[in-house]
Amino acid sequence: MQVDGSIRGVTVVDQPVWGEIGVGSRLDALDALPDSVASAWVLAEPQDEVLCWSRLLPLLGDRSVFTWTTRLLEASAEPEEEDGTNSSSLRRVTRRPSLRSFPSRPYLESRLDRHDDVVNVVDDLYERVRPLLRRSSGFAIGIASAEKPVGEWSTVTKVLESHFVLASESANSPQMEGFRRRLVSLYVEVALELGFMPVLPLDRNVRSGFVIFCDRSDLPDVLDSVAQPEGALSGRPGSDAIKQLIEAGGGLGYR
């Protein structure tokens, strides 16, 4: 899909409102969010995915990239949780509440990291996030002040840990899909409330890239960073670009 206004394979779309009247109501990965939540879409052809992530570098400045992943562990693991107050990484192991699926793996391991060293090197940033882009649950990417302790990021991602448990423990159904959408929406709202900007990758079916969620008051700062030099598509052209993406089968890479 080619969208007018793209430069070097990258298109940035400005969406100041995410509610039911906006494009958010057309996506099946999360429920509608309050009108105080805005978003910036950074889109590229699949072969230009690294160019998308390079757009995050000017936004970082005194901010860091935070990542979270979780997986099921075998019985040899022991429950543990690090403090995470003064560290840039944290590992948490908890016993799963149910063993209806994968009973030989009764523990859930979460790994959380604050990446302070990717401000000027896009290859380093892309190498950190690329393994996460192949997942559909059990991962998160966020941006926040470099002074934020990774323990606060742990609080945010516990919402998505519940999403992962539902996805791995329960049979899929329209009701369960609805519960998971609500959890993704809750994660976005909790992240913003605690000072993180969540970054949700696209599913790469049509375009690669990601969506940055932020408070409406922060959107100009985000766009000044990620939409240079060509600027962002706004208003009707921006909405049409996202609707075109969705109608072609694209969407957010979280299920």
Score class of each variant (00 low, 15 high):
Arg181Cys: 11
Val211Lys: 00
Pro229Asp: 06
Val206Gln: 07
Ala171Leu: 15
Leu192Trp: 05
Phe213Leu: 11
Cys214Val: 08
Ser225Lys: 10
Ser234Ile: 05
Ser234Lys: 12
Glu189Cys: 08
Asp240Ile: 00
Ala248Ile: 04
Leu219Tyr: 01
Arg204Gly: 11
Arg216Gln: 14
Pro229Gly: 09
Pro198Met: 10
Gln228Glu: 15
Gly231Trp: 13
Pro237Tyr: 02
Ala248Val: 08
Leu194Arg: 14
Pro174Glu: 11
Gly238Leu: 03
Gly178Asp: 15
Val199Phe: 04
Leu200Tyr: 01
Leu245Lys: 06
Val206Ser: 00
Val206Cys: 02
Arg216Glu: 13
Glu193Trp: 12
Met197Val: 07
Tyr187Cys: 02
Gln175Arg: 12
Glu247Ser: 11
Leu194Gly: 06
Leu186Val: 06
Arg204Leu: 09
Ser234Thr: 14
Glu177Asn: 12
Leu219Arg: 00
Gln228Tyr: 06
Asp221Ile: 08
Ile212Pro: 04
Met176Gly: 09
Asp215Val: 02
Pro220Ser: 10
Leu219Met: 06
Leu223Cys: 05
Phe196Lys: 05
Leu183His: 02
Ser185Trp: 01
Pro237Lys: 04
Leu202Glu: 00
Asp215Phe: 12
Asp203Cys: 04
Ala171Trp: 12
Ala248His: 10
Ile242Val: 15
Ser173Trp: 13
Phe210Thr: 02
Ser225Ile: 00
Arg181Met: 13
Ser170Arg: 08
Glu189Val: 12
Arg180Phe: 02
Leu200Pro: 04
Lys243Thr: 14
Val199Trp: 04
Arg204Glu: 14
Leu233Ile: 15
Ala191Glu: 05
Gly178Val: 07
Pro237Leu: 13
Pro237Phe: 07
Phe196Cys: 06
Val211His: 00
Ser225Gln: 02
Asp218Lys: 05
Leu192Ser: 03
Leu186Met: 01
Val184Cys: 05
Leu183Cys: 09
Leu233Glu: 11
Gly249His: 03
Arg180Thr: 09
Asp218Asn: 01
Gly250Leu: 09
Glu177Gly: 09
Leu202Arg: 00
Pro198Asp: 12
Pro198Trp: 04
Arg204Asp: 12
Pro201Cys: 07
Ile246Trp: 04
Asp240Ala: 15
Asn205His: 14
Gly250Arg: 02
Ser234Cys: 05
Ser170Tyr: 13
Ala232Pro: 08
Ala227Cys: 08
Gly209Leu: 07
Val206Ile: 01
Phe210Val: 05
Gly178Glu: 14
Ser185Met: 09
Ala191Val: 12
Leu192Thr: 10
Ala171Gly: 10
Asp221Cys: 09
Gly249Asn: 10
Gly250Tyr: 03
Pro198His: 12
Ile212Ala: 11
Arg180Asn: 09
Arg182Thr: 12
Gly195Glu: 13
Ala227Asn: 05
Gly249Met: 07
Asn205Thr: 13
Leu200Cys: 01
Ala227Met: 04
Val226Tyr: 06
Leu183Ser: 09
Val206Met: 03
Leu245Val: 13
Ser185Asp: 00
Gly195Met: 09
Asp221Gln: 15
Ala191Thr: 00
Ser225Thr: 11
Met197Lys: 08
Ala191Cys: 13
Asp218Thr: 06
Val199Gly: 10
Arg216His: 07
Glu189Met: 09
Arg204Cys: 06
Leu186Gln: 11
Ser239Trp: 04
Leu233Ser: 14
Leu194Trp: 11
